[in-house]
């Protein structure tokens, strides 16, 4: 257990180092790319660019620049954004609750509905219900999330907003839970649903495939031979072992989304989360923000995969260390 944690922490450090170096190189060492020019606005004089370079330390050697940036992120925690000239870390900390609200809600919806769909499809295998549900699931994973968001907005914000079903939907944006829980909820219902569609489809398919594969396992036959009820065979034997894959995938996807992967949903619904922050910083070459958000994202993804390994061992005794 101790070696597991040590190995994972070391890997986390390696990943964060590699990712930050990679991002740094992408933005500083790519020929023709110049953050100073980007910051200087339109038609800058050589003098302005030089001043900016000096002010932000961009005229120093690359390793020094990298070191300084890491120091400002991890040690003094006072890295300043090129764009807004505010501290980056508080900015990310204020965006994180938005992303967490979005991802948590969507995750609840997608877990519940994908399990129901996957179970129903597997149980009703051989009837029309199974192919019907699987086609729906395929459609779910074939819809671009940002486009679905736009269609949802078109319906709930404009075309059918007068209709009683959608008249409660507040304008796009985010209201903190602490400020108005009801408005927080109302504003997130459609982003949650939109974000979860892809994952419901994907997880339902994975679960169904796993259920059917497990159904052919000898131990399921043993369970039946024991005289256990079909419902118990399904829930305690087939579903229980099928959940191993499901849970591992969930951990990874959840990590990616919390780490900024819900970007498209945040953009289309105007939610000021980490993804949106990253996107804005990327398009304006605001390197300090990019650096911090990418490290933040990679941190969550790596953390999630470590947690998944732990949960995996808990779910599957075969991989537990003796």
């Amino acid at each position: 257990m101790a070696t597991f944690i040590v190995r994972r922490v070391l890997w986390l450090v390696v990943v964060l180092f590699a990712v930050s170096v990679l991002v740094f190189l992408i933005f500083f060492a790519t020929p023709g790319v110049d953050p100073a020019r980007q910051m200087a606005g339109r038609n800058p004089t050589a003098e302005t660019i030089k001043n900016i370079k000096h002010e932000f330390g961009l005229d120093r050697p690359l390793p020094v620049q990298y070191g300084l940036m890491m120091k400002h992120i991890f040690v003094s925690r006072d890295l300043i954004s090129y764009g807004s000239h505010t501290k980056v870390i508080p900015e990310i900390l204020s965006a994180a609750p938005v992303t967490l609200s979005l991802v948590f809600g969507a995750a609840v919806i997608w877990i519940v509905f994908s399990i129901l769909t996957g179970l129903a499809a597997a149980v009703f295998r051989g009837t029309v219900i199974d192919p019907l549900l699987m086609i729906l699931a395929l459609i779910g994973i074939s819809i671009p999330v940002f486009w679905l968001g736009e269609v949802v907005n078109l319906v709930t914000q404009s075309r059918l907003h007068g209709f009683f079903l959608f008249s409660w939907v507040p304008p796009l944006g985010y209201t903190p839970f602490t400020q108005d829980p009801l408005l927080w909820f109302e504003g997130l219902v459609f982003p949650w649903l939109t974000l979860s569609v892809l994952y419901i489809g994907f997880y339902a398919r994975v679960l169904r495939a796993n259920l059917i594969e497990t159904e052919n396992e000898d131990y399921v036959r043993t369970a039946r031979a024991k005289g256990i009820s079909e419902r118990r065979v399904l829930l305690r034997h087939t579903l229980r072992t099928s959940m191993i894959t499901f849970v591992s995938l969930f951990g990874l996807d959840f990590g990616v989304l919390v780490g900024g992967g819900a970007l498209l949903t945040e953009v289309v619904f105007g939610l000021p989360g980490v993804g949106l922050l990253t996107y804005h910083s990327l398009t304006s070459l605001d390197l300090p923000v990019i650096m911090t958000t990418v490290i933040y994202g990679a941190f969550f993804i790596t953390l999630a995969s470590a947690l998944v390994d732990l949960v995996y061992a808990w779910l599957d005794p075969r991989v537990r260390p003796a």
Binding site: E217, R221, G227, I228, I244, L315, P317
Partner: peptide, 27 residues
């Protein structure tokens, strides 16, 4: 009926299978 059959399985008629490696639930 299915329920009556379940009472037969395990209690009246029991079965041992070929491959003990895969016949027990690993979890």
């Amino acid at each position: 009926s299915r329920d009556a059959m379940r009472e037969v399985r395990g209690e009246e008629i029991a079965m041992i299978f070929q491959d003990p490696m895969t016949s027990l639930n690993p979890v």
